[in-house]
Design a protein around this nucleic acid. Structure first.
Lengths: 340, 340
DNA sequence: TCGGGTGAATAAAACGTTTCAATCCGAGTT
DNA sequence: AACTCGGATTGAAACGTTTTATTCACCCGA
């Protein structure tokens, strides 16, 4: 195991200066074809691999963009990540994927790491209401795009989906199906999504002129399957079971659904369920899940495009706030049947 | 936006040499408490963030380990990743997650990138039978752990699950349930997992003394839901529908299940289905899926531990090949009912 | 008072690139 | 023949750390 050939060994072998080798690597057109070939041959022969740290040190910034999400286990986020990756790799950028599990502490750690790596931009779904750590990034000159979190104040772009409309869509649908005792199972209200979806839901109730207690709230610690199960058990144990449940994401909905089915309840006749995100598994669930669809890939692609635009032409960049509109996909878990 | 404070600015402000600042960062105990506090104060005041590239350049290797998987959308891999992340972060290592989508070209690109980053180790589920690109990594001094791919020859550790046994378990179960026309839906046989699971399945048939045409093979291009759907449609269209299907992973099984249910077939009475991996969504599927369980987190944790052990004590490290044993989890999708 | 230690701090060399000003050389132009 | 021009190549500085050998200041025991 030799000590790894560097640019100077290559230069020596090709009988050129290190500057020329660097040019072959970075501006191939400026070097004469003959020498270029000689250098490439030397590179191949020595198995030379550019040392990215050295390059970065010199140029000042990494060719990577950080993507910080709330939960990698949630297919919603892996789909977003896929979108990001697609456009990033076209632009020759690597993506560093970080998972916070909704923890502020983990988020801070990851942001610290990304700052040390000198990534030029960060796409992030904030784990907290306070955007303070993110603003700090901006101060350091990092481009930031907030995902799923319109940044009214922050000096950054944002890409989001109108969660308020999403919440409304879900509740309107349930009301139209004739439900009058609805429970909303929500994640930590420290998360923007949780708050907005709730606000949308409540707004729908108000607009429909129903009593506020038509809609009861349950807050669980995290947006995952386990918490969905827990919420389901809670509902089963309690008195006054609702006739419909709106879960603020599909992971919760799938967990809850599982509990209901196992308990022998019929979905949707005994209890209707609506989820949020429309991940692929929603359609394949025990009872195909009605869900509020978000354009997952599109979110990722757009965010990546914004940030790449910003870093490539910082001067003529204006921060944008892009808001997609969600769409209700009705499936069996909430569709009126004629059984009862 | 000032030009980002470096270690020398900190040193100047704290009235010490840069060496001392570096010591505060890396060997805090060796510096006197008073000066240490002074330096820390300066760091805080300037908002100094260590430049990881410079550190890396000097020390020669990154504090990161690369994790290369076949499909980030597959919860199996995100769970493995979670395991890796857990132990890596305990050891102060970052994880760079790369997705190949089973493509050899993408795998090569990612390995190239990781090499440029000078990661000290790579955990990888190879996208191809040939391990050649991986051996090249080893030559460069990178520690490698093969995931899900026992490395008989390669100069590397491996962590895997006995896929042959897994295949056998699945088929034995279906035979025991009385099935005599079984189809196995498999991914690209360029993947080790596909080959082994098939071998196990065939072995089970042989051992049971059944005719080889009890088991028919279908090979689809990739281990994902879409391909599972396609296989399902193919089966529906063909003559001689099997009474049971063994899918070589849960994504395939979920896709296939969806098609069957939509076509009005009853699972398991009209057609039984067995999956592989036992991802969380398997239990929540339209019909809870029988599946061959692999210890997903454990795989990730073990791999990370191996590689960290190797890099920390290269001299007294011996390559290990750890093989877990899979376990059949029987659920409704294959359980004999008394309906027919 | 003198050495000999010890613990703390320093100065300077390296790490492997990129970049930029400077040089070189041959072809055109006058 | 003298000049200019432009493309190709070069050499050296710089990027921000870590590290190692060295110096420094001080105390202790002889």
């Amino acid at each position: 195991m030799k000590p790894a050939a560097g640019i100077r060994e290559v230069a020596a072998l090709a009988k050129v200066s290190v500057g020329t080798v660097s040019n072959v690597l970075n501006r191939p057109t400026t070097v004469a074809p003959a020498t270029r070939d000689r250098v490439l041959a030397a590179i191949a022969q020595l198995g030379f691999v550019r040392n990215e740290s050295a390059r970065q040190l010199r140029t000042g910034t990494a060719r990577a963009i950080g993507l910080v999400v709330l939960d990698v286990s949630n297919p919603f986020f892996t789909d977003v990540a896929r979108g990001v990756e697609e456009v990033a790799s076209e632009a020759g950028q690597a993506v560093i994927l970080c998972n916070t599990d909704e923890s502020v502490a983990r988020e801070a750690r990851h942001l610290e790491l990304l700052a040390e790596q000198r990534v030029h931009s960060v796409l992030i779904t904030p784990a907290d209401t306070s955007l303070e750590p993110i603003l700090k990034l901006r101060e350091r000159g990092v481009s930031v795009v907030l995902l799923d979190h319109p940044a009214e104040l922050a000096d950054a772009c944002s890409v989001s989906v109108d969660d308020r409309v999403g919440g409304e869509l879900a509740i309107n649908h349930l009301l139209a199906e004739g439900h009058e005792r609805i429970v909303m199972v929500n994640g930590a209200s420290r998360l923007y999504q949780a708050r907005e979806r709730r606000a949308g839901a409540q707004q729908a109730i108000r607009k429909a002129g129903r009593s506020p207690d038509t809609l009861r709230m349950i807050e669980v610690p995290a947006f995952n399957v386990a918490c969905g199960r827990r919420a389901g058990e809670e509902l089963l144990a309690g008195t006054e079971r609702p006739t419909a449940v709106f879960c603020a994401n599909d992971m919760l909905a799938l967990g809850l659904l599982q509990v209901m089915v196992r308990a022998g309840l019929h979905v949707p006749d005994d209890i209707a369920i609506v989820g949020y995100d429309d991940i692929d598994f929603a359609a394949a669930a025990a009872v195909p899940l009605t869900s509020v669809r978000q354009p997952r890939l599109q979110i990722g692609r757009t965010a990546a495009e914004l940030v790449i635009g910003e870093t490539q032409q910082p001067e003529r960049h204006e921060h944008q706030h892009i808001v997609f509109t969600p769409e209700l996909v009705i499936r069996e878990s909430s569709r009126r049947t004629h059984r009862r």
